[in-house]
Nucleic acid binder design. Structure first.
Lengths: 223, 223
DNA sequence: TTAATACTTCATTCTGAACTTAACTATGAA
DNA sequence: TTCATAGTTAAGTTCAGAATGAAGTATTAA
């Protein structure tokens, strides 16, 4: 028993693996390469670390073409990471990872650079309902009606389309277990909200705060 | 942030330290030598590990004569250990450390070889109230009234007194933050309850179950 | 087919941290 | 005092495991 606790703690303890887990704490799945970049290590090394985490059943891998996406195998993993985070001695850090933190993160947070959490999922639902986007073959697609709608909202669609990255893709929200909007369009929506002061980023956290303006605007546009 | 999570996880991850923490999970304080024996390592080594745990504010040390007693600095440490324990892959183990487990342990458990938890504290309170024991200079003392009372209960006092260990000492209950009865007398009380089938030990856990008989008897003798 | 990308596997190197040996301080007992 | 016990500190050694380099498989694109 205690040896197993030690094994798991050791697994979490490695700097690279801790960073992997911290990254995955936002609930989304990341490919091995993405994790290698964000942890600043080699593909071989990240592969080694990921396989150890999978073997211990902390992560699960999902194969998609030549990519492998990694995410938490279950909620308990996130809980454990948070429980450890609560032990960080620094006073300021402790407040940051307060008991409310997890709820906050789950409620409304930026996943990579797009809006996730309850709000993110609700927005995706609303856009699907308004037929701004439609779900097709495990993917999202923008409708012609949606194009007008987004332009009206103030999004420079041609510019967003010009970006190298994927324009629109669904991203699974871990706590909500439902999809929200990622890709260039997801990022553009987040930017719009930040610039219009609908929401504000909090320091040292992925959680975002919805402002009074935002409350109204979100209600207006997304219901 | 993530580096700090890693540091703490690494701290917990070492086999010796994991065993220390697992031992301390019962809520009582242990001396450095006691921990060295239970973890089967050298005094120098345990000292090194303990100092690391104290420096990280996972443990606190209390000096008492030439002894140093170590215990958790705060509840969060136990929570983190339990959260990690929940990640143990083995199915049987997972059930053992269920969500109810912590409550059970806190409610009624054997601390070393005496009764701790809510019940242990309640018994100590009752004995103080009945003036079977009195609190004197940070210690418990048996009254003459208490001697009769214990003999009537069926405890062989002379035999208990003959043991090498300390006859009666208060032991701080970590979750209840109050004292219960340890020492030879505490052990004798526990033995009596086990033999009389007032309580039963559970497998793989420090928690004990109060039987129907026990419920009645405890009510009768301790209120 | 060829080339490129995504990822893994294996053999090797190397470093950080646990443990050991030894010496030291502090409290208590004879 | 002297001896014993409890514990810490410092220097030296050892080893597990993380990182690297090289080579391999699988998928997609040209």
């Amino acid at each position: 028993m205690e040896t197993q606790i030690g094994q798991i703690a050791t697994l979490i303890g490695d700097p690279v693996r801790a960073l992997i887990l911290w990254t995955l704490l936002d609930g989304s799945a990341y490919s091995a390469t993405e994790l290698a970049i964000s942890t600043n290590t080699s593909p071989q090394n990240i592969s080694m670390h990921l396989s150890k985490l999978v073997q211990a059943d902390l992560l699960v891998a999902e194969k998609q073409g030549r990519h492998r996406y990694y995410r938490f195998s279950r909620q308990e993993v996130a809980y454990a990471i948070e429980a450890i985070a609560h032990l960080i001695p620094n006073e300021k850090q402790k407040k940051m990872v307060s008991h409310q933190h997890h709820a906050a993160v789950a409620h409304c947070r930026t996943c990579y650079d797009h809006l996730a959490g309850k709000t993110g999922v609700a927005i995706a639902d609303s856009l699907l309902k308004q037929r701004v986007i439609i779900s097709k073959a495990n993917n999202f697609e923008l409708t012609s009606k949606g194009e007008k709608w987004l332009l009206q909202l103030g999004i420079n669609l041609p510019e967003v389309r010009q970006q190298r990255r994927i324009f629109l893709r669904p991203c699974l929200d871990w706590t909500e277990r439902r999809y929200h909007i990622a890709g260039a369009l997801g990022a553009a929506l987040l930017d719009l909200m930040l610039e219009g002061d609908w929401i504000r980023r909090t320091r040292h956290s992925r959680a975002v705060i919805i402002t009074a303006t935002g409350e109204k605007k979100i209600q207006e546009y997304f219901g």
